[in-house]
Design a protein around this nucleic acid. Sequence first.
DNA 1: TTGTTATTGTGAAAAATAGAACAATATGAT
DNA 2: ATCATATTGTTCTATTTTTCACAATAACAA
Lengths: 208, 208
Amino acid sequence: MITNKNCIIRLSRYKNALYRLQDLGFVKVFSDNLADAVGGTASQVRKDFSIFGISGNKKGGYQIDSLLEKLNSILGKDQLQKVIVIGAGHIGSALMRYRGFEKEGIKIVAGFDIDPAKINRSNPVPVYPLEEARAFIKTNQIRIAILAVPDIAAQQAVDLICAAGIKGVLNFAPLGLKTPEGSIVNNVNLEIELENLIYFVNVAEKTR
Amino acid sequence: MITNKNCIIRLSRYKNALYRLQDLGFVKVFSDNLADAVGGTASQVRKDFSIFGISGNKKGGYQIDSLLEKLNSILGKDQLQKVIVIGAGHIGSALMRYRGFEKEGIKIVAGFDIDPAKINRSNPVPVYPLEEARAFIKTNQIRIAILAVPDIAAQQAVDLICAAGIKGVLNFAPLGLKTPEGSIVNNVNLEIELENLIYFVNVAEKTR
DNA sequence: TTGTTATTGTGAAAAATAGAACAATATGAT
DNA sequence: ATCATATTGTTCTATTTTTCACAATAACAA
Ligand SMILES: NC(=O)c1ccc[n+]([C@@H]2O[C@H](COP(=O)([O-])OP(=O)(O)OC[C@H]3O[C@@H](n4cnc5c(N)ncnc54)[C@H](O)[C@@H]3O)[C@@H](O)[C@H]2O)c1
Ligand SMILES: NC(=O)c1ccc[n+]([C@@H]2O[C@H](COP(=O)([O-])OP(=O)(O)OC[C@H]3O[C@@H](n4cnc5c(N)ncnc54)[C@H](O)[C@@H]3O)[C@@H](O)[C@H]2O)c1
């Protein structure tokens, strides 16, 4: 069931909102509650669900627990996702120390760096020399990597890890990467995010 | 000239690609070169430009330097953009140490934190107590803030800074924020980015 | 029961976005 | 000069995404 990226991002948002509602003690939810929670429309919520064959109850709405099960299954959250980090610098080590991924079933299992000073095999998230990345990826069947190396090293690093079996890369370097057929990249380009924000703030200021 | 977010992001990409081309010695560029450089179509490049009244030369293409001037002006890059960071923890301090924003005309001028241990007025990017944020925002007319506080503190922090005059927030906390009319939020939700990547990697794996 | 109501699920309409096509035209060749 | 060519700018077309609208129906009330 291939769909557009925004739709899948909405599924993640619904899922997160549902956990919050569940924490508040709710057991069922209506499309318009979810729409409010994520800032969308009720029709879109229902349409998104219908695309994935998720159905609720006429009148009664949706049962939160079973809805969460379905969303989690669609989003691949029924198994722990092991992720590695390439580049244990500022961003890389912030990510490795971050506990927030775990509650999402995402575990950073290792970091890799070329700088010997960054190597530390006994960290909670161990950091290994880059040369070991290939073997690690293969033996642990890692498919997802976070790329946090300097811009200039990014393409080379992505070539290396994709050749070793990485299928999805979350790239922090502010440049486009070429990947072999079958691997995909999501870019986190903070420069562009800020630029974008600045643009819309300026527009809002002018048109007011 | 309000347009869709993707279009503005493309402008940023064109701009970045143009700098690279300029570094390589090019002085002019055709719509299809740019399309290749950012992974789009030539029509779209020309359409994007035409929306903003940017014109080139029949035959001759676009002059890179004047094109860059126009894009930079649209993107608000003709003046240094001062930004503050709220929360000098892992992410916040990685950002404050990052030199990459400067070449984009974006300067992080201060950080703010509630933890006294994080305060340091003599850092390259000084970190002040949160109580000083309001006055700082007002006297320095800061409009853009990066929010890197724990999830639980995020809404409160955004309320505070928006009341003080912040118009645009780049939010790292993985939850939706309410902002007053006139302020906007761009979310950097790494959990969702990873989840999304995992989804598409899974889909690719299944359909292969 | 029967009727009323709330809410889903979906097909059709609308809006937004992207792409193709091509006339207009500047450039360079002959 | 004239012609051929390359490339823009824009209109028209196609696709994608969102929203609307409403029949279907489950829940509840009387
Ligand atoms: N730090 C930020 O706030 C920030 C913000 C936006 C974008 N970025 C981008 O994120 C990336 C990382 O930034 P950073 O600030 O963490 O940089 P950093 O210099 O702190 O860390 C980079 C790390 O990568 C290691 N490294 C270098 N080449 C490598 C290779 N080939 N393989 C493995 N490791 C290698 C270095 O030894 C270093 O430890 C950069 O592309 C940067 O542009 C960072
Ligand atoms: N670190 C990561 O890799 C990462 C990844 C994804 C998302 N995030 C999100 O980014 C945010 C920050 O994460 P972090 O890892 O940097 O956290 P952190 O705990 O390292 O840092 C948070 C900082 O904010 C300060 N703070 C707390 N309340 C504050 C307030 N009201 N005003 C100002 N400062 C306040 C704390 O003193 C601390 O210094 C969180 O929402 C987290 O979920 C972080």
